[in-house]
Simulated assay, not measured.
Amino acid sequence: MFKKLFSKTDNNTKLSLIAPLDGEVLSLEEVPDPVFAEKMMGDGMAIKPSGSTVYSPIQGKVMQVFPTKHAIGLQAENGAEILIHIGLETVNLKGEGFEVFVKEGDSVKVGDKLVQFDMQIIEQKAASTITPIIITNTADMGEIKKTEKKQVVAGQDEVMVVDK
């Protein structure tokens, strides 16, 4: 069901990120938060979720589970560092509405359940449900190609390809 993660061509490793959420694809520039829209944390894209479960978009390792459970940092085998930030201003929820299924140091594969969240709590108490997916070490990576799809299905659709 899940796509191949890496392909090697001409000594270049490409990482394929699979949609971690079901939903509508947005460019970072469309995210109503300047930290993401102006790419201060790195390049990537965002998903306005239609589902409430976040799955691993890569095979790699959990590097950070934020204490407030609103974000997870992953590292792919090619060194790409990925931040999945669930909603906007969700740090203020102090963990309310989030259930985390992994811990720092865990190995994950595409489709592993990372976090489940209560969409109603985020809609009522946070700025937005929009979830940025950021490559935080873009300076260490090559080209980042983003999907042109408008809707994606978690665990099935490729959302980004990152060159090393």
Rank of each mutant, 00 (worst) to 15 (best):
S7W: 07
K3N: 11
I18D: 00
V161C: 03
T131E: 08
V110A: 10
P57W: 05
Q59A: 13
V91D: 03
A126W: 04
A139W: 06
K14H: 13
D22S: 06
K164W: 08
P34D: 14
K4G: 12
E96K: 15
K109V: 15
G44C: 08
G97C: 12
K145I: 10
P32E: 06
V152F: 02
A76L: 08
E148G: 13
S107Q: 15
K103R: 14
K69E: 12
L17K: 00
E99K: 14
S27K: 06
S7C: 11
K69V: 04
G51C: 12
G97R: 08
P67M: 09
S16V: 12
G142K: 08
S7K: 14
V54M: 09
K164P: 00
L93V: 10
D112F: 04
D157T: 05
S128L: 06
E148A: 12
L17G: 00
F101N: 11
N12G: 06
F98T: 00
E104H: 06
I18W: 00
T53W: 00
A139C: 05
K94M: 14
Q75P: 01
P32F: 05
V110K: 04
L28C: 03
E96V: 14
M45R: 01
P20Y: 04
K94D: 15
V35K: 09
P49N: 07
H85V: 07
I18P: 01
L83P: 00
K146V: 15
E104D: 11
S16Q: 11
K164G: 14
V31C: 02
Q151P: 02
P57G: 09
V115H: 03
D33C: 13
K113A: 12
D43T: 05
V65R: 01
S56I: 05
N12H: 15
T129N: 08
G142A: 08
E123T: 11
D22V: 02
M1S: 14
M1P: 11
V162E: 01
S50L: 10
E123D: 12
M63G: 09
P49C: 08
S16G: 07
M41K: 08
A46F: 01
K149H: 12
S16Y: 09
Q124W: 03
K69I: 05
F2Y: 13
G23M: 04
L93F: 09
S56T: 09
I122S: 03
G60W: 01
E143L: 12
P49V: 04
N78A: 04
E123Q: 14
Q59I: 13
A71E: 03
E158L: 15
D43C: 05
I144K: 00
T147K: 11
D118E: 10
T147S: 15
